[in-house]
Amino acid sequence: MAGERSAGAVAPSRSAARQADGRRPSGRSLGRRLRSELAGWTFLGPNLVLLVVFLFVPIVWAAVLSFQHSRGFGTPTWAGIANYTQMLGDAVFWQSAWNTLVFTVCTVPVELAGGLGLAVLLNSVLPGRTLFRTIIVLPMVISGVASGLIATIMFYQSNGLFNKILTAAGLPTVSWQSAPVPAMFSVIVVSIWLRLGFTMIIYLAGLQSISPQLYEAARIDGATRWQQFRSVTVPLVGPSTFFLLVMNVIASFQVFDVIFVMTGGGPGNATSVLVTYAYRNGFQIREQSYGAAIGIVILALTLVFTVIQWLTSRGKDLVE
């Protein structure tokens, strides 16, 4: 009986020890998880603070201001949707919106096609490809204002570089700064030049993740270089294309520095885009509430495009 009691006493103690041992690893794992999450929030915290202070708070402030009347002096008064209804009859607003659309349609496809072509070329065995990559990427390290000043010198109407070349070739000069179409053409060319390096870098990263065995299999099947590009390269850089499409469209809707430095939105309003028009209202003629409303419209347009593009791309992925 004593032996049975002792055995019975030992058994619960062993089971209790096993339970205690089973609890210790879970406690350690919980502690490690908490420390890991704390470390993550420690790294994210400063960025989140900066985002809240310099992005989300200004957006909310601009949204509130867009429903008020304010010229920067005195107490703002409530205006409701008056600033938004004003846009419906504002001819300059619609012209700026049209110019933004034209600018986007003319720049984004060229940037995507040119960036992919350069990436394919510089991803192959090409003499001096490192030098060419550096030359193409170089505009990325120059600020938009400095690039705009350089472009202004090149497109200057009286004695700019391009008109001097045309004169030397016996051709008539172009009114880059006083004619609407040449002015828009000049800012489009400069914007493509500035963004081409970024597009090429993203496509280069996508190309280098493609397995060479896929191209080898395509060659064995008799595919030409064009067929390899169309059937292997283009589909497999699809995620890069999606990312660049969204980023370049957003950049086109938000273009400001190049146009502001080169043309100031002129001649007339021929190169005025939504951001330059919002700046003009908010800081030059002191219609701050109307400028804020235009800024909210720009934000809404970019969000709508991004969501539509995201849903369309996700639908294709699900089908595949």
Rank of each mutant, 00 (worst) to 15 (best):
V234N: 09
A270T: 13
V141N: 00
R230L: 14
M140E: 05
L166A: 10
A39P: 01
R225Y: 06
W78C: 03
H69D: 11
L214M: 08
T241G: 01
G128P: 04
G148W: 05
V249M: 00
T85W: 13
F93W: 12
T271I: 06
I250Q: 07
L55M: 11
R71L: 08
S209K: 03
D257V: 09
F185E: 00
R230W: 13
W98E: 10
V125F: 03
E4N: 07
V60H: 14
R24A: 12
V273A: 00
Q157Y: 07
N281Q: 13
N248T: 00
V92W: 05
L30A: 13
G117Y: 04
V237H: 02
A223K: 08
N159K: 06
F103M: 09
A91W: 05
N83D: 06
V273S: 01
G144N: 10
F253D: 03
G160Q: 05
S70E: 12
E37P: 00
L214G: 01
V307L: 10
V319L: 13
L318D: 12
E111D: 00
R5D: 09
S147D: 06
F253S: 06
P12V: 15
Y156R: 13
W78E: 14
G3D: 13
T167C: 07
P127W: 07
S66V: 08
Q208F: 09
M87H: 03
S272E: 08
V145F: 02
P127D: 13
I202Y: 00
A278M: 12
V125P: 03
F162V: 09
W226K: 10
M1V: 11
T312Q: 10
R230G: 01
C106N: 01
R32C: 08
P46T: 05
